[in-house]
Design a protein around this nucleic acid. Structure first.
Lengths: 215, 215
DNA sequence: CCGAAATTCAAACGGTCGTTTGAAGCGAAA
DNA sequence: TTTCGCTTCAAACGACCGTTTGAATTTCGG
């Protein structure tokens, strides 16, 4: 091997620890938010030492930044929701696809679900890390929502109207995902199995398309 | 005076301290949530001693409970939004009235605005105090929202559909109130003066009434 | 196998949190 | 004026927080 090839060879142990910390941090931050999630709980779940966070990521904020990078990458994967796919559908189907995709965390406790929970936390009290992170690239959920509503709004709609409608649509699924646990308890007692999810998509799509007067 | 009359005469100082603490706690909890608001900041704003919270309210949670009682009382005052007034209006006007009333905190920094902020916080991570508080009486914003949507939905609509629609409507204004500060900054840069508020009510009412396809 | 670099580890640091403590201040009845 | 109960106060307590420290351990090229 030449010297150039071994500029920095990360040991397997390093990557293992880093990955375990990022995975644990994702679940902890999704559960308690950035401020509410503690380094001690993260390292405990990752079965790592407390100091490992500072050693590998420079601190709690560095670890969180890494989680946000992973989250962004996951959302940018075409597998989740492609902008071209949205454009290929009719406006109505694009709306239903959008709602369905962002309501999926209700029934699936997967990686994307945890990312959505993190974004839901940030929508209440944005951390400085997150603010800096999205300063120059708005979260994908907003970009996709804008793409959907633009299909419906007239061309001469004001920028403010587009923003209002975009925010209006984007926060509809986010609410149900964020408050799922609370809605599962009295007095609402909503259990979200796959059938209930379909009915929710139906209801929201109808309301978003035709409004209350069109139900 | 008989002995019965002077069972317990609260000194003026007691009520002054209590009121100052409740007022300060309302603004602090509205700003940072229950978990994020500290007793030290509250007592500092109330110009009281730290121990006063425990002396007068038994602890941080007791003080918060008092704030919630005040908030509930404020919402139950007819001055805010009367159920009979809602019923006297046409469904469309009732909807607009509902939206306008719960979007008012965008331009007014009054007492009700702070209460709405507290409820917005609780919608993310409910404190035990709040959960116990509303266990047997759902927040008024939900009751009013249900009253509005029932005017539109068919009589044979399922309970689940009514709940979906009610939640859908209730969280629309809450989102803008909760995220007002964030929406005021880039990339959204929404400034909510009275005119913008009217335009937002217009947009939301149109979307809620006729949906995206009806804009 | 050796030695240097990378990584892990237990312990401690300084800070903020809610709460407790016991003395000091205060107002009104005796 | 003395006394007594209510209220205030500065200080401290224990718990948890993110971070730092310096030694122990592991890793791996030479």
């Amino acid at each position: 091997m030449s010297n150039l090839d071994q500029t920095r060879v990360a040991s397997r142990s390093t990557e293992t620890t880093r990955a375990a910390l990022i995975k644990a941090a994702t679940s902890v931050f999704a559960e308690y938010g950035y401020g509410g999630g503690s380094v001690r709980l993260i390292t405990q779940r990752a079965m790592a030492n407390q100091a490992a966070v500072n050693y590998h990521f420079g601190g709690k904020d560095g670890l969180y930044r890494e989680v946000l990078i992973e989250a962004t990458r996951a959302f940018e994967e075409n597998a989740f929701l492609d902008t071209e796919e949205l454009d290929s559908l009719s406006p109505e189907d694009a709306l239903r696809r959008y709602l369905h995709q962002f309501l999926l965390p209700l029934v699936k406790r997967d990686r994307v679900s945890r990312y959505l929970h993190i974004f839901a936390w940030e929508s209440v009290r944005p951390s400085e890390v997150f603010s800096a992170f999205v300063a120059h690239s708005p979260p994908r959920i907003f970009l996709l929502a804008e793409r959907v509503v633009r299909r419906f709004l007239p061309r001469d709609a004001s920028a403010e109207t587009v923003t209002f409608a975009m925010l209006w649509l984007a926060q509809q699924p986010m609410f149900f995902v964020r408050d799922a646990e609370r809605l599962a308890q009295p007095p609402f007692s909503l259990k979200f199995d796959e059938d209930a999810l379909e009915r929710l998509v139906d209801t929201l799509a109808t309301l978003s398309l035709r409004g209350l007067a069109g139900v």
